[in-house]
Nucleic acid binder design. Structure first.
Lengths: 342, 342
DNA sequence: TTGAAAGCGTTACCAT
DNA sequence: ATGGTAACGCTTTCAA
């Protein structure tokens, strides 16, 4: 076997300790677990010996016995995005506090990869999975399979229509707020850059956008609504298309950090000014907004809370709770320079 | 294809399959592993039954037997940084290709947390660990302990003086390049913002900075060199201090993305212009440079290659190779607007 | 070609 | 208070 060559020293097992002391393994187990049924004397000796030899329990023996791993899986569409990285960071911190380890996987926004990740995690017998769906994901059979196998799942950000516990922000309301803000700032032709239409998140945000237009009595210009599989390049060409329209938009609402980036690039490289010629608002993180010039008007999300709650919801299920709930964490508009005509 | 109702109850084990077919478990094992010693007939039946019932090997039984987990640990100082998130993403991708899962932990730049992470991973019997040291880490006993336990380790970015395989960029050369670029752009009083002095990375970058000054015959102004535990706030106050000097710097070289951010904020909020009043260059990712206005002159690192190579080096060790090597991946200067006087 | 049994580390149960 | 044994899932002898 590959491993044996460098694992020269073997770990101390309870059985080893038992042999050393000439007692039975079950006695060692009792002593180590702090159960009664061991004389104070013997327990003392056992604990000391274990300490001396650096005894560590073997988690695989435990997993094998109890079919629980105290490990959860986390699947994100793209770990390189600051948004997801932040959330993962907080999931990990929360999980560690509760004694769980995290296996992080990256679907790269691809359905096939996502399915493969789920399968791997399933094989690993993780106790539960927290995930954000890829943009490509339409078929949810990998999720329903998890449900059938009684493996707890919690979704965040991008959820499904099927019933799964989920943590999201108030997408409709925030998109509406942002759109109203743009309108009140003088915008009359607001473009909407979103992900694919099948995503509930996109649908919700578009809903909010349309509601705002309706509320202010503005016409819906279909050619200003761009919902496709979102990449930096798709955002770039969509924005260029928009700028080439006979009547180009005077504001852009981008539902995805990536799209804000490409919109910025397309606009600035054409020599237009933000916000004087065209305003931009979008769903980016505080940090991205801050680093950008002009600073981007954005929806401030509590990423720590999203991560924490996602883990808590998963934890509740792992502990036996079964109630399906949708948790909505309120986010709100933060106005910066990209929509403020100076 | 019928992995439904059976999945609901319990996982299929080889023993279960054996009972169903009225054969011995060892026969199932042989058949499933493609070993000879099973009639073609029986093997066929076994494979089909396994398929039908969605049999999946139990990794814990394997781990228990072989003391190998096909899991590696990854520890970063802050997953929320785009730099680390990118590297982790590529480590994960490479590991998955090789059939390894990743346990990601975040030390939050704290020594205690880092030690705790190492301990957890050790207990989990990961086959190896890839890590970037926290800023606080001076004592390396947790690493030498891993070495003694024959658990392969590979460091990246921030390495130690002790002999561990590592992947870094050419820190001295890139810092020198950047400094020369600033000088050649007219800067005469270049400040250096770094991490703590005990970090080899900081030492190397400072080395390159000083070498450039020497080469161009510029005096070293000690009050312009700020090396402390780097946080956004420390960077902020350091920059403010620098700006308050009787003879403030006309350029800043920041060795850490965070410090670039705080320097930007301090400078801009004082109403100074970049690069007209003060130039900035630093170690940020392409993406951060691009999002920023003005775009930041930076050292372009191949984060994918760093992640890939870090995993390869760990893999080699896990496969039995023992050679300690230091791999240096060349990065280079990318000039943008933050140092270009227009 | 197939079966039986032991062992990996741990614990629950029953016996002493 | 302690020992013995079986069990978790799988593989590896060795025996039939």
């Amino acid at each position: 076997m590959v491993l044996t060559s460098y694992h020269v020293m073997k770990r101390m097992s309870q059985r080893d300790l038992a042999r050393m002391l000439g007692v039975n393994a079950s006695t060692i187990s009792r002593a180590l677990k702090g159960e009664n049924g061991v004389s104070a004397d013997l327990r003392q000796k056992i604990l000391q010996l274990a300490e001396e030899h650096g005894y560590r329990p073997n988690p695989f023996a435990m997993s094998l016995r109890y079919d629980t791993t105290r490990t959860i899986g986390v699947i994100v569409p793209d770990l390189a995005f600051s948004h997801f990285a932040h959330i993962v960071k907080h999931i990990e911190a929360e999980a560690r506090k509760a004694g769980y380890m995290c296996i992080i996987s990256d679907s790269n926004e691809h359905y096939e990869t996502e399915v493969a990740c789920v399968e791997l995690l399933e094989n690993l017998h993780v106790d539960g999975i927290i995930m954000c769906l890829s943009q490509e994901t339409v078929d949810l059979s990998h999720l329903t399979r998890l449900k059938e196998a009684h493996i707890p799942v919690t979704l965040f950000d991008r959820t499904a229509e099927v019933d799964f516990p989920s943590v999201t922000i108030n997408d409709i309301a925030t998109a509406k707020q942002m759109t109203l803000h743009l309108i009140d700032g003088g915008a009359r032709n607001i473009a909407f850059l979103g992900g694919p239409n099948h995503m509930k998140q996109t649908a919700d945000r578009k809903h909010g956008y349309l509601e705002a237009l309706r509320e202010r009595g503005l016409p819906i210009r279909k050619e200003l609504v761009r919902c496709t599989y979102a990449t930096f390049n798709s955002g770039l060409s969509d924005t260029i298309d928009l700028l080439n329209l006979p009547k180009p938009p005077d504001a852009i609402l981008a539902t995805y950090g990536l799209l804000v980036g490409s919109a910025f690039q397309a606009i600035l490289s054409r020599g237009l000014r933000i916000p004087e010629d065209i305003a931009i608002a979008g769903y980016v993180s505080d940090w991205v907004s801050e680093m950008n010039r002009p600073r981007v008007t954005f929806i401030k999300q509590n990423l720590r809370e999203i991560g924490r709650q996602a883990f808590r919801m998963l934890y509740d299920q792992m502990e036996g709770g079964t109630s399906v709930q949708q948790l909505i964490i309120n986010a709100h508009l933060e106005i910066r320079d990209s929509t403020r005509k100076i």
